[in-house]
């Protein structure tokens, strides 16, 4: 007997919320970035759970797509953070408030 789908969805919702709260309360760009990864992961969990519930492999397939995009996103994001740090000597998102390099 497998567990009901609700359990996984609730866990996924909680993880997502923690990610959202992190983005809202933290000011360190890197930690905000980690929280975004956390939210993506919560979505992945929901994908896999529903995939098993429906007995279809598509859910797992999309998790793999999400991971590929997340990897690309992390590479770009961290490169941006590094170059911002080089120019401004900070990664506090409150201080990075002008578009002018």
């Amino acid at each position: 007997m497998s567990l009901p789908l609700e359990y996984y969805l609730v866990l996924s919702a909680l993880l997502f919320t923690i990610g959202v709260i992190g983005v809202l309360i933290r000011r360190n760009a890197i930690i905000i970035f980690m929280c975004i990864e956390l939210m993506l992961n919560a979505a992945n969990l929901a994908f896999v759970a529903i995939s098993r519930h429906l007995g279809q492999a598509e859910g797992q397939l999309f998790v793999i797509f999400v991971m590929a995009v997340a990897a690309a996103e992390v590479a770009i994001g961290l490169a941006i953070i590094v170059s911002v740090f080089k120019h401004r000597e900070t990664i506090n998102v409150d201080e990075i408030n002008s578009l002018k390099g």
Partner: peptide, 26 residues
């Protein structure tokens, strides 16, 4: 300046979101 100024508001909104998410899931 580790956390923003409106930390309390953010946490309350977050809890609301969590309740909403759990409600929808169930």
């Amino acid at each position: 300046a580790l956390t923003g100024k409106l930390k309390g508001v953010a946490i309350i909104l977050g809890i609301l979101l969590a309740v909403e998410g759990v409600y929808i899931a169930v």
